[in-house]
Computed example of a mutant assay.
Amino acid sequence: MRVDKYLWCIRYFKTRSIATKACKEGKVRVNGDLIKPSREIYPMDKITVRKNQVNYELVVLDTPDNRIGAKLVDIYRKDTTPTESLQKLDLLKYSKDYYRKKGTGRPTKKDRRDIDDWFIEKPTEDNDDSEE
């Protein structure tokens, strides 16, 4: 089976054309060698895929006939990705800046609420004395 088709079948890439593009860009290695998308893979080949700034490492156990369900992926590959790489992925998620930079456009709904909360005066006990 072709390596691009295999990566698509085991759901590392959403489409086969994306898998082919990754192979052409040098983000996929088989047994440490840069490969073309048409490279045949066999059981016990070691594949390294660079995706989302993480190097995923996997061992081919078998080749599926067609794209398979997510629950069946472990039948066809063994994931040997180091835990440090996966922890790096978690840190990347936390380090993303979810807010826009200062001065770039209108405030969002959340920003507006925060501004309103800042300027709203909270009642104090001094205001309660005026009722007597």
Score class of each variant (00 low, 15 high):
Ile115Met: 13
Arg112Phe: 04
Arg50Glu: 15
Lys109Ile: 08
Tyr99Asp: 05
Gly32Asn: 08
Lys14Asn: 10
Glu121Cys: 00
Asp128Val: 11
Arg2Pro: 03
Pro37Asn: 04
Tyr76Cys: 09
Asp45Glu: 15
Lys21Met: 05
Leu89Met: 12
Arg50Gln: 11
Lys122Cys: 00
Arg106Met: 14
Arg16Val: 06
Thr124Tyr: 02
Glu131Thr: 02
Leu86Tyr: 05
Asp74Trp: 07
Pro64Lys: 09
Pro43Asn: 08
Tyr99Ile: 06
Arg112Val: 00
Val73Asn: 05
Thr81Arg: 14
Asp129Met: 07
Ile35Lys: 08
Asp90Ala: 12
Thr108Asn: 07
Lys14Cys: 03
Asp74Ala: 10
Leu7His: 03
Met44His: 09
Lys51Val: 14
Arg67Cys: 02
Val49Arg: 13
Arg77Glu: 06
Ser17Glu: 04
Arg2Ser: 03
Asn55Lys: 13
Thr108Met: 00
Lys101Asn: 01
Met44Pro: 01
Val73Arg: 04
Gly32Arg: 10
Gly69Leu: 03
Arg2Met: 03
Gly32Trp: 09
Val54Ile: 14
Asp65Glu: 11
Cys23Gly: 10
Pro82Val: 05
Leu7Pro: 00
Ile75Cys: 01
Lys71Ala: 13
Thr63Met: 11
Leu86Cys: 06
Val28Cys: 07
Asp126Pro: 00
Gln53Cys: 04
Pro123Met: 07
Trp118Thr: 05
Cys23Gln: 03
